[in-house]
Design a binder for these strands. Structure first.
Lengths: 333, 333
DNA sequence: TTGAAAGCGCTAACAA
DNA sequence: TTGTTAGCGCTTTCAA
């Protein structure tokens, strides 16, 4: 009925708890006779070791890694978090490990004592926690954030260059009046993408107009008014680079609602290659595909390797992005 | 540098470990003077309580619930698992709890000693684990599985009636040669959906043809050959009810590839309203929308209520589905 | 090959 | 209001 402990098993099997422990931990120095008795007792009593106790006594952690996801609004509704979670999930499944998911803005701490390593999905708001994990000497991988300043591994994409690619593409199509709708500046990602936009313009000696930079937050809602502002300008842009597909799709919507043709009047390019957004797009969206899933799988593998001491902690990986042409951008005549 | 324990804090603050414990647990009976000293020491040493030890000593579990996901091929790639995970994630986030995810086919057990309650995403292959959780007296909710035989809560949709709706819809459109591609029979869901199909035909006195029932496994790949078999029959069906959108989309593909028009020659209806599948569908797919996300959120809330002792354990909820007409079915002349 | 016993870091009586 | 101390369930010496 109730949960049995190692003492119950020892009593049932007629051996000491030490022997039970040895059987549970598959140590060899147990006579077959006793081993059988213990295994029988374990089965009969449906005994499962208390993992907390195992952890405490052994100072080992049992096959669990932690995933820390920043808690900003709707994070769990975002394609981003879900893809990373999925990737980590897939990898963890393969490694037959458990996954402890902690979603926080930094005010609560992951139960560090129950994991063998930690993965951060970005570090927004969780910088303190990153420090703590590092100080504790726990293996640690940060996803979607590139840093050389911290003694950790990271897997990321080159948001800066990917954005340059997007804007260069628009420029190659003949555009020079190019606006951007940015992501949430709490994230490094948003900053990098804006910088990519700026530098691309600079390299082509295209004037940067303040009014062409609209500050969004990655989410659909934020793009609505910003797009309206853009199309109502006396000198509206002929192209928009949105820092997320969600925003790009909303931008398309707003354009169409207001009689602005896409890509006839305005070309729009997104970022993410987010199928959930694409599905709701009135027009096939040209965008930058980023390998979030792969990023997460790699992060998990690296973490595992570090835990297994197969590699040192500081592995930094940049994954390539890809421009996917679909139909929301056109060449100017 | 290394992880500090309660004794280190006590020494640093010049009090006993009991006092530190009291401060950590926000008990009142600590003089402000000592409390301040302890809090300072905690900050200075970056002390975080060892949760395993807390659990052991207090017999409480700390704010963590377990989610057990069946490990069948590609489960983590399925829309189903991801939606449920997302729903649970959203709810857990709101409750500021941690989530321990365990993916298993029954051969490994969730670290039961570190959670306050358990949610099962279906119980395929994990029946033994369900029993164990129940015996251990842990609060437990099963998603996507309806049972009255177990003393647990569950949240599910009525797959049987939803399938009847789908087939009735086809019948209303004038179809009588209706085939089905089923899901994986390891799941109750697949069985219920087939039964809905069968009973709908029966009620309308439409002959059930064995050859019209094709046994798939929910996944895209499985629908390919089965659809070919259907369209190559001397008497091919005029409509197909697929037990998942993934399969429905693949069925559409196969039809088009073989010169069979959809919905001209064959109407196809899916199940799930899975945006990832819909996005890749050559034709807007008519389907049954099921509230997976909501199901997961509710399951988590129920679990929390049971843990908080706000309600008894046996709450059973059936959520409604909805037929979404899009364009892959047509009325026969 | 076994068992006794000392912890692991913490909580919760109980005593002071 | 504090400190002392006995466990929580387990692992791991150390002896036998």
């Amino acid at each position: 009925m109730s949960i049995k402990n190692i003492r119950d098993v020892a009593r049932e099997a007629g051996v000491s708890i030490a022997t039970v422990s040895r059987v549970v931990n598959k140590q060899t120095s147990v006579k077959k006779y006793n081993k059988d008795k213990v295994e029988l007792a374990i089965k009969k009593l449906k005994f499962r070791p208390n993992v907390s106790a195992q952890r405490m006594a052994s100072k080992r952690n049992n096959n669990t890694i932690g995933l820390i996801i920043p808690r900003y609004t709707n994070i769990f509704h975002s394609f981003y978090a879900l893809q990373l979670l999925q990737g980590v999930g897939v990898a963890v499944e393969r490694m037959k490990m458990d996954l402890l998911v902690h979603i926080t803005n930094g005010d609560t701490f992951l139960n560090i004592s129950s994991v063998e390593g930690v993965i951060f999905a970005d570090i927004v708001g969780n910088e303190e926690q990153v420090d703590y994990v590092i100080e504790a000497g726990l293996p640690c991988v940060i996803m979607n954030y590139y840093t050389k300043d911290l003694p950790v591994s990271c897997t990321a994409i080159d948001n800066f260059n990917a954005s340059m690619d997007a804007v260069n593409y628009l420029i190659k199509l003949g555009h020079s009046k190019i606006a951007t709708i940015t992501g949430d500046f709490k994230t490094q990602v948003a900053i990098d993408r804006l910088n990519g936009y700026l530098i691309a313009l600079e390299k082509h000696k295209i004037e940067k107009k303040k009014d062409y930079i609209k500050y969004g937050d990655f989410e659909r809602e934020s793009a609505r008014d910003l797009t309206k502002e853009l199309i109502r300008m006396k000198m509206p842009p002929t192209a928009i680079f949105a820092a997320s597909d969600e925003m790009a799709v909303e931008a398309i919507r707003v354009c169409l609602e207001n009689g602005v043709s896409v890509p006839g009047d305005i070309s729009i390019i997104g970022f993410d290659d987010n199928p959930l957004a694409l599905n709701y797009s009135p027009i096939p969206l040209t965008t930058i595909r980023q390998p979030l899933h792969k990023m997460a799988v790699m992060a998990t593998k690296i973490l595992n390797d570090v835990i297994q001491k197969k590699i040192r902690a500081n592995k930094r990986i940049i994954l390539p992005t890809e421009l996917v042409e679909r139909g929301s951008c056109r060449a100017l005549d």
